[in-house]
Deep mutational scan, measured.
Amino acid sequence: TGEEYIAVGDFTAQQVGDLTFKKGEILLVIEKKPDGWWIAKDAKGNEGLVPRTYLEPYS
């Protein structure tokens, strides 16, 4: 389980392990790392690192 967040901007993977997403996408945050990069999963089940500055809590 995780917390749902909504993307407030588009993000394109910079390196292997990053997750590309579009503004408005709902992501499930699995782990919040202290460096500001969180592990998240998208609706298709893809998992990767995302920058927390692009996310806001979804309710």
Score class of each variant (00 low, 15 high):
41 K>S: 07
27 L>Q: 01
52 R>P: 15
48 G>S: 01
45 G>K: 04
8 V>L: 15
15 Q>R: 15
20 T>V: 04
44 K>E: 11
56 E>G: 05
16 V>K: 15
8 V>F: 05
1 T>G: 14
31 E>N: 09
26 I>P: 03
28 L>W: 14
53 T>P: 06
54 Y>M: 13
9 G>S: 14
29 V>T: 02
11 F>A: 02
30 I>C: 05
34 P>L: 10
10 D>L: 02
22 K>T: 09
41 K>M: 09
4 E>G: 06
27 L>R: 00
49 L>K: 14
9 G>L: 15
37 W>A: 05
38 W>M: 04
46 N>S: 08
50 V>D: 00
17 G>I: 04
15 Q>I: 11
45 G>Q: 06
21 F>K: 00
55 L>S: 00
17 G>F: 06
24 G>F: 05
43 A>M: 13
14 Q>L: 11
18 D>C: 12
23 K>R: 13
2 G>I: 13
40 A>E: 00
10 D>K: 04
53 T>C: 12
14 Q>G: 10
23 K>A: 09
34 P>V: 13
2 G>A: 12
48 G>L: 02
51 P>T: 04
58 Y>N: 07
23 K>Q: 08
45 G>L: 05
7 A>H: 00
37 W>R: 08
2 G>M: 13
59 S>L: 10
33 K>V: 07
48 G>P: 00
42 D>G: 04
6 I>T: 05
15 Q>P: 03
47 E>A: 09
23 K>H: 07
47 E>S: 10
34 P>D: 11
25 E>S: 11
57 P>E: 08
57 P>Y: 08
8 V>D: 02
29 V>N: 00
19 L>A: 01
51 P>Q: 09
24 G>T: 03
6 I>H: 03
11 F>C: 04
8 V>A: 07
3 E>P: 07
4 E>H: 15
32 K>Y: 07
7 A>R: 00
6 I>Y: 06
41 K>Y: 10
43 A>H: 14
46 N>Q: 11
31 E>D: 12
51 P>K: 08
28 L>P: 00
4 E>Y: 15
33 K>D: 07
48 G>T: 01
29 V>M: 02
57 P>A: 10
3 E>L: 10
56 E>V: 14
46 N>H: 09
4 E>W: 15
40 A>G: 04
21 F>V: 08
28 L>Q: 08
33 K>I: 07
58 Y>F: 12
56 E>H: 13
52 R>G: 09
3 E>C: 08
37 W>P: 03
1 T>W: 08
22 K>G: 06
38 W>D: 01
29 V>L: 05
12 T>G: 06
8 V>R: 14
49 L>H: 09
13 A>G: 13
37 W>V: 07
21 F>N: 00
13 A>E: 04
40 A>N: 00
55 L>C: 02
17 G>N: 06
18 D>Y: 15
36 G>Y: 05
37 W>C: 05
13 A>L: 04
25 E>A: 14
50 V>S: 02
57 P>L: 12
45 G>H: 05
48 G>H: 02
30 I>A: 03
23 K>F: 08
8 V>K: 09
16 V>C: 08
47 E>D: 06
6 I>S: 04
1 T>V: 12
24 G>M: 03
41 K>A: 06
23 K>T: 09
36 G>H: 06
31 E>K: 11
23 K>E: 07
17 G>Y: 07
26 I>E: 02
44 K>D: 13
19 L>H: 02
47 E>V: 13
54 Y>D: 04
7 A>P: 01
49 L>N: 12
12 T>Q: 13
52 R>M: 15
43 A>Q: 13
6 I>R: 11
50 V>H: 00
33 K>C: 08
3 E>M: 12
59 S>E: 09
27 L>A: 01
4 E>T: 15
10 D>G: 07
25 E>D: 15
37 W>L: 07
32 K>A: 05
36 G>W: 04
36 G>E: 06
15 Q>E: 10
56 E>K: 15
1 T>Q: 14
33 K>P: 08
14 Q>D: 08
54 Y>Q: 09
52 R>H: 12
56 E>L: 14
32 K>G: 02
49 L>P: 05
34 P>N: 12
21 F>R: 00
23 K>C: 09
22 K>Q: 09
54 Y>S: 08
54 Y>I: 08
